[in-house]
Design a protein around this nucleic acid. Structure first.
Lengths: 191, 191
DNA sequence: CTATACGGAATGAACGTTCATTCCTGTTAT
DNA sequence: ATAACAGGAATGAACGTTCATTCCGTATAG
């Protein structure tokens, strides 16, 4: 097994275990076992568990962004752009439940809060499709004149909640239901 | 200290610690210390940690419901009823951040998922103001014709998200902002 | 071409720490 | 005096992390 493969085995095993059992249910020994490596080997690739977990999150975002942005045109009407992003996000989560469950675990942990604080208040507020879309929406008065944070909550709160419900089998989302849900969440933010 | 007082000290300490530091950051020894009791004493009141935590959740719901339902009239128009419940919920969470943080921790843990599964699919689907309100909304065509679970997500997803953002100091909610947020989430579900 | 030596990578047993839970001692109330 | 209770030290299981050792591919010597 090459070095890169081994690293990715470790990352994949960790993601799987954390998604399935939460942070509690993913001790290093178990990650090592599932990745078919020795317990110590992990520490050749990651300084410690914190670094592994933060790395996981970064890897994940890098995999997710391109998928969501496929077919996204910054020139379309705002409504279309929102519907595209919302549906793409929802489909991604449904198609990659492990990624979704990991992100949920991550965001409800000390790691996640710090991560989000940086994103909202922090330096690397850099380029961000979502922020750009919402700022345009507000300034063109297509969206409600509410703080960005609240618009985010109105838009993505429902989407994350239905993704969770689908993955926990409380409901089964098909393409029609996805579309109607995203449209409903658009109704929440549009003027 | 009376027996009932001691029990409530333990419950309060546990809620505080779990809310502040998550489940990881609330070992029994620390709960005992904050409650000014011995570590073993807790086990005279609760069989084990699981029982303590589930008890916490039940206590909390019993404290929350009356507050939210104060001034609620089942005869008002559906829109008013929703606005009342939404604003009351949001205000409760903002005024009782520890309760909110605990509920979040709880719902993102194995305990919480089981608890919710029971509530949605389970037996004790018994009386529930929210369910009743939404069923009425759908059947009178005041709300979108979507599965109940999705309407819940559309309505409460945003409210929980903004409550979280307020408590984490990403935004400061005042009465005006609360009202406008609840109205926006109503736009998401109404026809 | 084969045999030997080398060095980085992998290993997993062992360590120190932390936790939930138990147990025994001392205290209080009757 | 006795029973019920409270306390916190003791216990053992589980965890993240370390480190002495083994393994293996490659370079070097014969």
């Amino acid at each position: 097994m090459s070095k890169a493969e081994k690293r990715s085995e470790i990352v994949h095993a960790a993601l799987e275990l954390i998604a399935e059992n939460g942070f509690h249910g993913a001790p290093m020994a178990m990650i090592a076992e599932r990745a078919n490596v020795g317990a110590g080997t992990i520490y050749r690739y990651f300084e410690n568990k914190d670094v592994l977990i933060n790395g996981l999150c970064q890897d994940l975002e890098e995999r997710m962004y391109p998928v969501i942005l496929t077919g996204y045109s910054a020139d379309s009407p705002l409504r279309d752009r929102f519907l595209h992003l919302g549906a793409a996000l929802l489909r991604y989560f449904i198609g990659n439940p492990l990624d979704f469950r990991f992100l949920e675990q991550f965001h409800n942990s000390p790691y996640g809060v710090e991560h989000r604080r940086d994103k909202i208040l922090g330096k690397n507020a850099g380029y961000n499709v979502f922020r750009e879309l919402f700022q345009a929406g507000v300034s063109r008065q297509v969206m409600k004149d509410l703080p960005l944070v609240i618009l985010f909550a109105l838009a993505f709160g429902p989407l994350l909640a239905v993704a969770r419900d689908h993955i926990l089998n409380f409901i089964t989302l098909d393409d029609d239901l996805i579309a109607r849900t995203v449209e409903a969440s658009w109704d929440g933010i549009r003027n």
